[in-house]
Nucleic acid binder design. Structure first.
Length: 501
RNA sequence: GGGAGAGUAGCUCAGUCGGUAGAGCACCGCCCUUUUAAGGCGAUGGUCGACGGUUCGAGCCCGUCCUCUCUCACCA
């Protein structure tokens, strides 16, 4: 198991031997640079501009990793992969001369080369660089898994997920589509930033290493600062610092960054994950819904040119506007139960019937939320904003004007999962101090309750304008928009146990 | 934490009833100037996840443990 030197010493040693032989030929197997003037995909998609039948002496120069070779005595085909894709090379003794051809015969799949040549279609019509010059740029000594493709079908895929996650550098080279998935992730994040920047939001950076944590119910990672000799925490949410900035007069701020939660791991949870948090002064939860819709719809269109995507076997249409449903109405619609008219006992029965639990004393608002999660959540396939959660679900959100039993809050559900959570943020300093203090007292019972953050409360006491706040799970969004079912497939380097026992 | 599956060559995988460890690709040698899962001939390559047990004999049966994958639950 593993890709350790000891395990494949013989294969590696023969390649180290080749490095010596190449040096003996007077060739440096690790030169310092190369003049790259073309990329594979540009040559292929603009073939007319390069076709040597038309442009007689047009020389291209490109560099990439050798992915396959087909050697036929005094000539060979090879394909190399660069930043933008793959392209075939024709390597002939008569075109590159004996020295370079002898070098070529010593090369392996995985080596990085620079080539110059002319572009022409082969007899069977494949656009190919007929090389006239070959430069070894980096000699590989650790063999790559050989993955073959024919007509889009992949053979001998590098399919061991553990090896792929532990050796993402190899995965990126040999597994078709992996790179594209991560390029999509990059484009998604860039597009979100473009949207927010165009709305005059300021992208800020706030600390991840904190003396005190808060903003969510979660267990933090702890660490230690040596010279200060103090305990520090990795943040579990971005919220407390962004709200300080709103107090400070930065009226529209956002951060896309890592949060860390010391909890279980599964297909949708990694210990470190990426959140978008956004706060807008003088806005409320309705404004947050509009921004959320725009973020999803625009990003999907930008990636695919359509608002429809397939996810978990469903066609999901992200076209806005999305349905907005109060939580109790959603329960009515999906289960024909009118929770507001139920007795406490009937609600308990409904929860227990589905295997749900009521923690501590019975609280109607929490029970309504529980019934929603048990009976409705997984049924929501098309995007829906669930609004007006019971006030008991969070102390950080303002109650609705019309009915103080419910909040000006929404959660976004798509394909049975939650993607975003937003509030008309509570800014009553007396209420905030009280709830945060009460929460800090519960810490010996509730491990996920946060400690009192005096500086944060003082900030709220300074006066936070009415503010709409939004939290959006970037990893979940990337999964939705790339069709990936596991968070590990959209994180370049997911958290792994160490290889040795 | 529960359930299911898996761990054999660098990669992808076979391995029958318990009887000398197999293939394809890669690698090495040879042939080959339009191939594309290139082809042909030949060679090399193994602590069968670990430990223990049963047996004349274990990749295979039994036990314990480790790791991974999938899935359910829990947790935001």
């Amino acid at each position: 198991m593993g890709l350790n030197v000891e395990d494949q010493g013989k294969l590696i040693n023969t390649r180290i031997e080749k490095i010596k032989e190449i040096r003996e030929m007077g060739i440096n197997p690790f030169p310092y640079n190369y003049d790259v003037r073309n990329f594979s995909s540009d040559i292929i998609s603009n073939f007319e501009d390069f076709d040597s039948e038309v442009h007689e002496n047009k020389i291209v120069s490109l560099a990439g990793r050798i992915m396959s070779t087909r050697i036929m005595g005094k000539a060979a085909f090879a394909s190399i992969m660069d930043q933008k894709g793959k392209i075939q090379l024709y390597v002939a003794l008569k075109n590159i001369g004996e020295t370079d051809y002898n070098l070529f015969k010593k090369l392996d799949i995985g080596d990085i080369i620079g080539v110059e040549g002319t572009v022409k279609k082969t007899n069977v019509g494949e656009i190919t660089v007929y090389i006239t010059k070959l430069v070894l740029l980096t000699k590989n000594i650790r063999p790559l898994p050989i993955v073959k493709e024919k007509d889009g079908e992949v053979f001998d895929a590098f399919s061991d997920k553990e090896l792929r996650y532990r050796n993402r550098h190899v995965d990126l080279i040999v597994t078709p589509g992996v790179r594209e998935t991560f390029e999509k992730r990059i484009r998604i994040i860039k597009n979100i930033k473009n949207i927010l920047d165009s709305k005059d939001f300021l992208e800020v950076e706030t600390p991840t290493l904190l003396p005190i944590y808060g903003g969510a119910n979660a267990s933090p990672f702890t660490t230690h600062h040596n010279t200060l000799d103090m305990k520090l925490y990795l943040r579990i949410a971005i919220e407390p610092y962004l709200k300080r900035l709103i107090v400070g007069g930065m009226d529209r701020v956002y951060e896309i960054g890592k949060c860390f939660r010391n909890e279980g791991m599964d297909r949708t949870h990694n210990p470190e994950f990426t959140m978008l948090e956004l706060y807008q002064a003088y806005a409320d939860y309705n404004d947050m819904m509009n921004i959320t819709e725009e973020i999803f719809e625009s990003t999907c269109k930008q990636l695919y040119g359509t608002t429809q995507i397939e996810f978990k076997g469903n066609v999901i249409d992200l076209k806005t506007p999305w349905k907005r449903l109060k939580m109790v109405d959603a329960i009515k619609e999906y289960t024909e139960i009118d929770v507001e008219s139920l007795s406490d006992d009937d609600m308990k029965k409904l929860i227990e019937k589905k295997g749900g639990k009521i923690k501590g004393e019975f609280i109607r608002g929490l029970a309504i939320n529980e019934i929603f999660e048990l009976y409705v959540e997984e049924q929501i396939i098309q995007p829906v904003f669930i609004t007006h959660q019971p006030v008991e679900t969070t102390p950080l959100c303002k109650p609705d004007y019309d009915d103080e039993r419910y909040l000006q809050r929404f959660e976004l559900f798509i394909a049975g999962n939650e993607y975003a959570n937003a509030y008309s943020e509570s800014n009553d300093p007396v209420f905030q101090r009280k709830t945060l203090y009460e929460q800090s007292l519960r810490r010996d019972v509730d491990k996920e309750a946060s400690p009192m953050d005096e500086n944060f409360v003082q900030a709220i006491e300074t006066g936070m304008p009415p503010t709409g706040g939004l939290g959006l799970g970037i990893d979940r969004m990337v999964m939705l928009l790339t069709g990936e079912r596991s968070i590990r497939d959209i994180l370049l380097f997911p958290t792994m146990k160490p290889e040795n026992q």
